[in-house]
Design a binder for these strands. Structure first.
Lengths: 357, 357
DNA sequence: CTGAAAGCGCTAACAT
DNA sequence: ATGTTAGCGCTTTCAG
């Protein structure tokens, strides 16, 4: 079986054309399902394609057409289940439409974020879905604009002409805090991400508003903003529980933080909810199956991915210059058993069973 | 500032050459850090590049050089934390080396797997890291071979000339089962993935071997192979606990399965470990923080990603035709508090505290 | 050290 | 309906 092939051993459109005794244009037409091809010719070409195992070279196609049918996905850490779920949801929509997802993690570090934008400037995906962490001094926004491709921001607020999909984390933290306030708690700690990233800032805002509503003061030391790392939550919880007047309740302001809070609470022997009430922002197996099950402010994580993918498709289908869309997902409180009224004496140490009559 | 640009508004190597008054070849040389460029010329070109915001078009580069600096990553479900961790670990190695990871989920469905392989046949990544689920009738293996690129299989055993990295799940299940057997359990259930995928098959094998070692018979109905979906574990656990002679212990043979097992056990009021002992294959926050903490057979999930990435790099660095490497990671038992000797009477219902002297 | 030119594999006119 | 051909943007000889 004679056939000439490219250096990598794959046959090219030329090989097919030669073997089928047609011009390359014709092969291109059958590959792209162009209507004006004689059925007989089409069949002959298709047979040759099958015989040679010809696969159109997407690189060459992209070079010609200037579209890669590729969507970049940039997040701080793709190992984080939050982003993994979102990626999964987005790719479940994009993949069947012929788009391939190209991922990159930034570690939330500015330098890497810039690097990654550079990579995508060179690779020319058709669109970008991203969550950038480093604050904006205009450099990032400019870099994004230079990309000249549809961009969808996730859970972040970087001013610019791009679509954005996010969760009302302020609302989530607000409801969580109110719930605790309503139970009679006053020393409520909030552990969450740095205020420089939207979810962190939003939660602080919701928390603060809940206190303001009751005309109650916020104690600054009870606000622990730093990162989404469970170890951060562990350290902060330990530190909080070691205070002379430990908080009677903690809001874990991030999907991954609950694990750190529970671990530290366990180590400190702080019984939940008798000695310490806990609310988590973000529902997980852990929140549902912990003892007791943890009250959470939950939202539809995957919906972020779905909305982002749909925004991308909308742009790519021609609404390229429509006004930036902005979708905000609601957060809802699910009351479980991790919250109780605060213990009056020996705050943070009391044992509910012992104290009850 | 005059400058001609491509249709997408990006300047090309030609624009740079024109503006710097050099030939495109020279621009190419400075971009690729070729040594033989006069320093003065280099500087002039670099300035123009900065001024025009020129970014080499990776598509065109790939077309010429036939390398994409891209690695495909194919798994059943990228939302699954197991794969997300592995992807994270792999990309943490690949990204700094200039490789971009392209992901695709297959849902474990044959048709999609074939689709995805087709996509990658066209996109021409430099290598592929994958976990295929559908059994092999030779079609898949042939498709992979036609790809003519380095391939690394993860957690799967598909015969062929590719590297493989996997975990000794048989060993994990064996140790877990022995542990239970040693405690005196005899009716031990195993819930795991379908036997058609390696982790499922391996766990059944380890479990069976543990019984064989003790010359004990395996009761087939206690083997529940089906999927890695927590809902599957939930259903099977419910079904098992509804038996007239429910198992006294359950091995959750998959990282995600523990959640389903615990949920069902909770609903059935089966206290752990007094009424039901539980071992999980795969360590998680849930296993560590459940009450009681769950004994697990654990292994280093990320190491799979690291090993896969390293295998890819090794091939890409020239060891293209070395014999297929095969790395097997060990699994280790971490005893926590979810296992106790089986309850003698009223199996599956007794309360440990009531029975102890 | 630098310029000129030949393609990489494909699509999309433009002819016929 | 099909053949021909001009590039897409880049790298890489090959001359000079």
């Amino acid at each position: 079986m004679r056939r000439r092939r490219g250096a990598d051993g794959k046959s090219t459109i030329k090989d097919v054309a030669r073997a089928a005794k047609v011009a390359v244009g014709t092969v291109s037409r059958v590959v792209n399902a162009h209507p004006s091809v004689d059925p007989a010719t089409r069949q002959r070409v298709e047979r040759v394609i099958a015989r040679l195992g010809y696969e159109p070279n997407a690189i060459a196609q992209s070079m010609r057409t200037r579209v890669t049918r590729t969507v970049g996905f940039v997040v701080p850490d793709i190992s984080n289940p939050n982003w993994a779920w979102i990626l999964g949801a987005a790719s479940r929509i994009l993949q069947p439409r012929g788009y391939t997802v190209v991922v990159a993690s930034t570690g939330g570090e500015r330098a890497l974020e810039l690097d990654v934008l550079g990579v995508f400037a060179r690779r020319r995906p058709d669109a970008l879905i991203l969550a950038l962490d480093s604050g904006d001094d205009g450099v990032l926004a400019r870099a994004l604009r230079q990309l000249r491709m549809p961009i969808v921001m996730m859970e972040r607020e970087l001013p610019g002409p791009w679509d954005a999909v996010m969760t009302d984390h302020a609302g989530g933290a607000y409801t969580a805090t109110r719930h605790l306030l309503g139970l009679g708690h006053r020393r409520i700690a909030l552990i969450t991400a740095s205020e420089r990233v939207r979810p962190g800032a939003q939660r602080v805002q919701g928390y603060t508003r809940a206190f303001a509503d009751e005309q109650l003061p916020v104690e600054p030391d009870l606000l622990r903003c730093g990162s989404f790392d469970p170890d951060f939550a562990f350290r902060e919880t330990s530190s909080l529980l070691s205070r002379r007047d430990p908080p009677t309740a903690i809001v874990a302001g991030g999907i991954q933080l609950l694990a750190g809070v529970l671990r530290a609470a366990g180590l400190h022997g702080a019984a939940i909810p008798s000695a310490l009430s806990v609310v988590s922002c973000g529902d997980t197996d852990l929140a549902q199956l912990a003892s007791p099950p943890v009250t959470v402010a939950r939202w539809d994580v995957k919906a972020i991915g779905v909305a982002a993918a749909e925004a991308v498709l909308r742009r790519l289908r021609g609404a390229a210059s429509a006004a930036p869309a902005r979708v905000v997902l609601e957060s809802e409180l699910v009351v479980r058993e991790s919250c109780a009224p605060p213990c009056a004496r020996r705050p943070g140490r009391c044992q509910a069973r012992i104290q009850s009559p």
